[in-house]
Nucleic acid binder design. Structure first.
Lengths: 229, 229
DNA sequence: CCAAAAGTGTTGGAACTACACCCATGA
DNA sequence: TCATGGGTGTAGTTCCAACACTTTTGG
């Protein structure tokens, strides 16, 4: 079947930078392309947008299809638009404009499975990335910057997203490690604890971790943003 | 001539929110659509992207074509990408994904002329907007937010863009009025002057305005960002 | 001399930084 | 009892907000 237009149309894709924190290091999910162009290269998961779906839904679907993330794993995860990339020639096949998204997946539920279009799907440390297909290195750089900005600038509803990295019940030390990993710099423990408790509305679950051979830690959950800006 | 593809392709457009400050009020340039859909409605200038041009160049070209802004008027102006809008059904003709841009034009050199596709081109105060075609009201809201964020958050190279509103040589009072207009709130004079002089690298031109029937004001020019964050 | 905008310092509060020791648990 | 991470307060500094009067010019 063919589709005909009076004027030339570009193709439109979505690409998704899926971040997670694994062993205290920021990781991103990449797939190895099973088809040309860039067959064998690593790339961000993504693909063509269907005509009847919104951009963000296309991103979700492609992520499910290519990295084998099941829809319920994506449920409730924040998808943030980073921008559109449309340099002519960025795809050797035809004019392709891509809309890039960013998402964060929890430290715990994480499973990548190669499937359609992808030979493999794996986590890579941000410090040790392979060469990427298309202009995905640029996109990933912007995604990394957007992520940092989420925690460094003023508190917004969006910034809540960073807590997706944590399990629902978390300790302040886990939270601290997450912020340190995202910002790429160590934070002072007492100051961090003061800061997070004044800026975020944390619920004290009155529970403690158990099992470590050290003092148990109090568990918290995120309620929402604190009232004062 | 017809263009045929194996899979359906959406159309891709750019839309541009052109802001200026006129008589101390934030204005945006709108065109009255000369053709369906939304014939007779006001809309952001914009149009289809050519296959061989980058998104930002498409935005520049469309702005020139539709609002009669000459290329040299656009020279050196910052174009900032706001995001992609692709809700299915946002254009009644076919699937259209638009990439929205934001630009700022100086208080002085400003000329809008209706031309191709546009019955009229006019400046509107942001406080008194007509109903807009497509989802342009949403886009304009985001653009307005992006503009505010430019001045309210930390200093970046991007934030320099706000100085496009000012003539090359400006007084601190003009600068203050501009910041007030963008943020929509009055600023305290002494604090503002201290702030701008510590945060921006202003060159004192050792010149004064003349002609007002009041004390002459010192003229400044923007050099760049100050070293300290 | 009057109107109109330009210019100029100080003080209090809030927010952030730096810093070192004791506690609870499991092995 | 020791190793491991959890938990706590204070003092100095920096940054921001509030606030009112004098200066220079043209008419």
């Amino acid at each position: 079947m063919a589709f005909t237009y009076d004027y030339p149309h570009p193709a439109v894709t979505t690409d998704i930078a899926v971040f997670s924190i694994i062993e205290d290091a920021l990781h991103v999910a990449l797939i190895e392309r099973a088809a040309d162009p860039f067959k064998g290269s690593w790339a961000l998961p993504g693909g063509f947008v269907n005509m009847d779906e919104d951009l963000i839904d296309g991103a979700r679907r492609e992520l499910a299809e290519e990295a084998g993330v099941t829809p319920d794993q994506l449920d409730g995860l924040p998808f943030m638009q980073i921008g559109a990339y449309g340099r002519p020639g960025r795809d050797p096949r035809e004019r392709v404009i891509t809309v890039a998204f960013l998402t964060l997946v929890p430290m715990d539920r994480v499973k990548l499975v190669a499937s359609t279009d992808a030979a493999k799907a794996e986590w890579f440390t941000m410090d040790d990335l392979p060469p990427l297909a298309f202009d995905h290195a640029d996109i990933l750089t912007s995604a990394r910057e957007a992520l940092s900005k989420l925690v460094s600038t003023t508190l917004t509803e969006e910034a809540k997203a960073v807590f997706s990295f944590l399990p629902q019940e978390f300790t302040l030390s886990q939270a601290q490690t997450m912020f340190e990993t995202i910002q790429g710099q160590p934070l002072e423990k007492r100051n961090f604890r003061k800061w997070i408790q004044t800026h975020w509305d944390l619920e004290d679950l009155k529970k403690k971790t158990q099992g470590g051979r050290h003092r148990p830690a109090a568990l918290y959950a995120l309620n929402g943003l604190s009232k004062q800006s």
